[in-house]
Design a protein around this nucleic acid. Structure first.
Lengths: 219, 219
DNA sequence: TGTACATCAGTGAACGCGCGTTCACTGATGTAC
DNA sequence: TGTACATCAGTGAACGCGCGTTCACTGATGTAC
């Protein structure tokens, strides 16, 4: 199916439009996202999107769905990287959420800020959100089994922890956290501090540092 | 100064415009807030606001400032009502935040979502945010002294706890929390659960219930 | 108290803009024979 | 392989709309004498 690219007039306008929208979000923000700009960026006339989306809402729903997929993929990667160390898995999963938000604030916000009004009309969006939440639940279950988290109801833990991470991210993105605070404590540090309130054992100091992407190890 | 109402053509258009904006936020949401609607609602022509605000941003900054004042007032009330019971004070302060957001989601969002771009140009807004944060810090300090909270840096505690409450609220307002979860646990219950992660003693069960506004007491 | 003038809050017409959406169309591709 | 037709992705003009902002003005209030 991928080989079909460029087959028709454009080839894969639908996905090109989604990508264009994501680019605009990254470069100009939520308030400058319009169907006309998306079309222009994809190199088609401003009426072309209507061949693929019934209206603007539908495009946004598609963008949001893709956002959940990407977020899901990132957290899943963090989980799979640390299957043998649940504590680390827990923290890196949260950190993946923070990084996703920081790297593309407008995209993160449109994905998670419930801009889509009638969510039930977009089944793939509903599925994407459910999948992401389900994976998050699995991480929590694993941590409960490992004794990292207390044996509280998973949904209660999930909601509290998600809220903790989400709120921290939102406050930072919206410039609500004073520089006086952010100069004292890195975002990573604040995240680990928040998460450690839920953790039933001492968190090793090295987890307070942002993990390097290289493979170098000391010792 | 209050007696001056109705003195001039309108009397107190500046504040009337702020109130009109708040009404529109409550009834129509953030996306339907325009200078023209605000003016119409206040009963003046659409150019009249320019006698009091240099542009739309300035009006929004004033609305946001007033939002911080109201939020501040609510939390302060919760604090003053429970000076002799720090644990309760802590939880009711958080609950005041949640209630404020729930009662007027759009107003809460515009106040806390950093819509105002050049915040430093609006000193009274900066002052309002600083005051609210300062009061929150005081509550936390009091709880540390009472042994309710651990002796971590106040700013770290403040940021973590604020993030916890804020994230929970945002996820609920944006419809991200599944009904399957909200049917199991009330928002109050989730809030107390989140806060109790920070609390260094057992939280009495009755705090899981929403406090009645009446003065009736059992026993 | 009365008149002349200054101040300034609020008016109403006008501006240019970008928006979402529609519609008759064009023209490239796919399909039947 | 070649022709006729159907399909449908993309075009471009047009629509009506509400927006933020400006500007010359009006008319009520405050002030000086």
């Amino acid at each position: 199916m991928n080989a079909k690219t460029e087959r028709y007039h454009h080839g894969d306008l639908k996905n090109a439009l989604i990508e264009a929208a994501i680019d605009i979000l990254a470069e100009e923000g939520v308030h400058d996202l319009s169907l006309r700009k998306v079309a222009a960026r994809a190199g088609v006339s401003h009426a072309a999107p209507y061949a693929h989306f019934v209206d603007k809402q539908a495009l946004i729903a598609a963008v949001s769905t893709e956002g959940y997929h990407r977020l899901d993929r990132r957290i899943r990667t963090a989980r799979n990287t640390h299957t043998d160390d649940p504590l680390r898995m827990f923290i890196e999963a949260g950190w993946a959420y923070v990084r996703f938000a920081q790297e593309d604030p407008a995209y993160f916000k449109i994905t998670l800020s419930g801009v889509v009004e009638k969510e039930e009309e977009y089944p793939s969006l509903v599925e994407a959100t459910a999948n992401a939440y389900q994976m998050f639940r699995e991480i929590i279950t694993k941590c409960k089994q490992a004794g990292i988290l207390r044996d509280d109801p998973t949904d209660l833990l999930a909601t509290g922890i998600w809220g903790s991470i989400h709120g921290l991210v939102m406050l930072v993105l919206d410039g609500q956290i004073s520089h006086l605070v952010l100069d004292q404590f890195s975002l990573r540090r604040i995240l680990v501090f928040s998460l450690s309130q839920y953790i039933q054992q001492k968190v090793p100091v090295e987890l307070y540092d942002i993990p390097s992407t290289g493979k170098a190890k000391i010792g």
